[in-house]
Amino acid sequence: MTAKELLLLDADDNIAVARQDLKAGTRLEVHGSPMVLERDTPTGHKICIRPIAPGEKVIKYRTPIGSARVPIMPGDYVHIHNLKSDYLPTYTLTGDNIRKGA
């Protein structure tokens, strides 16, 4: 059972998306497990639903969108402070870099 306030894009994802603006402290259930929202979370923003270790991929819609900078726990808000791009924004894009980066 997953709370109606959350949108789970794929069963394998480790984040869910807020369907509406949600307040810090809100209690929600994801896959039957309770969790408490760490911060105010606006519509469309991301919330951790499974423990994510530093360096582990954050998965949205079954696809990596970057790596965790720090440990992220269920209920945590996921954004720039704890998630970084695996992509090289300087566009020094080579075959080797992509294989390492992805």
Partner: peptide
């Protein structure tokens, strides 16, 4: 993009890719 809840270029691209 970040204000709208997107964190990385991969995530933004993912929206188009979906």
């Amino acid at each position: 993009n970040a204000d709208g809840g997107l964190t990385t270029i991969e995530e933004k691209s993912l929206g188009a890719y979906a």
